[in-house]
Design a protein around this nucleic acid. Structure first.
Lengths: 207, 207
DNA sequence: GTCTATATATGGATAGAC
DNA sequence: GTCTATCCATATATAGAC
């Protein structure tokens, strides 16, 4: 741990394994493949992380967004709509940046494998969710928002960002782009955020 | 094939394997487990389906919704909004009924495994998608709808239904339900459809 | 059609040399 | 820290008896 190159190497392995797990799923990736791609000896996976599963857990835990980060940013805004839009933009940015990670997370939450991991993720997601429902509920109480279905509203926000983030090949085909990378450039990110603003403004604000 | 009981047995195996694949993912399920759960000899999987992968392909291909079915139902409605709402209700019903199947489909589309299968699914999804974007485009042309982002609008519709369908444990926690089954009863289905109507009416119709 | 037994491959993990 | 060699479990698939 004292040698920074060791931490770099650890991070390398985590990055490479993250990509492989996102592309193929946990079971389909062998530690042999990870070690080959990372150009390390196969025994080093156990040496660094203990096991394939512990490596996987470390990948999952290192990038989870804390609702505390959201909480701080939100304070800069006055209206509940602007708070919600800040959250939408922050989540979109984080999801765009960590697409492989998000693929892993959402796949893991839909599986009954490694239930301690799924439970952990659901609890984490639930906290972020609660934080956002509170914004919407406050908006309704203050009559800034219409009396919408709060849970379905917040779920929709996540659903849209998530589907856009994890369905690159599909979006690519639908929008006639040449490369999946084009789906996730700055322009498209701003386009998605603008769309979310329009959609949720129409949904939430009284006319 | 002449004996109906043989087709019943085949369907039994397909149903049981579908559930296991949905819960655990393709690689994590062994043919041993399928044969145990279906109470058949392990060799019968190869005998009936040829291989584990061919069994999987049969599970995937047997329940895909054809856009032709949507096409017929849609003709009964006059406005583009009602056509779109009919599609939303039909898709919701189909997804609620075949939740395990949908889990498999969406997981498969996000994986780079079995690319011929993913390509096939993306092509299929793309056709259904095209059919729905046409409805929205027509609505915009006829000035029934505002000039919204068509692709993102249709993607959002799928995203919401999909997330609701495949995130039972999460929804269960958020809505304080006791059992995952309660999330998918008739009442909740109608609630989701009403929500979609409200959301997309506000989004699409000029005020 | 059904079963047992087995061929064959590949997986994760580690002991022990360096 | 790094590597080779190997252990051992488990996987799919099938040959061949019934």
């Amino acid at each position: 741990m004292q040698d920074p190159r060791i931490n770099d190497k650890r991070e390398d392995i985590l990055d490479i394994a993250e990509r492989l797990f996102a592309e193929q799923g946990f079971e389909a990736v062998s530690v042999r493949e990870i070690s080959r791609e990372a150009e390390i000896n196969i025994a080093m996976i156990s040496y660094y992380f203990g096991s394939k599963e512990k490596l996987y857990e470390e990948i999952i835990k290192r990038k989870l967004i804390s609702y505390k980060e959201l909480k701080q940013g939100v304070n800069a805004f006055d209206t509940e709509l602007e708070k919600l839009m800040f959250v939408a933009a922050t989540v979109t940015q984080a999801f765009f940046k960590n697409r492989n990670f998000q693929k892993i997370i959402f796949r893991e939450m839909s599986l009954n494998q490694r239930t301690h991991m799924a439970d952990y993720l659901i609890e984490h997601m639930h906290q972020n969710f609660q934080f956002i429902t509170d914004i919407v509920k406050r908006g309704i109480r203050k009559k800034e928002f219409k009396p919408v279905e709060v849970e379905l509203t917040v779920m929709s926000l996540f659903a849209i960002i998530r589907m856009y983030t994890t369905s690159g090949t599909m979006i690519c085909k639908i929008t006639n782009k040449n490369s999946v990378e084009d789906v996730y450039d700055e322009k498209q990110r701003l386009r998605l955020i603008k769309f979310l603003r329009d959609l949720f403004t129409a949904h939430l604000l009284p006319q």
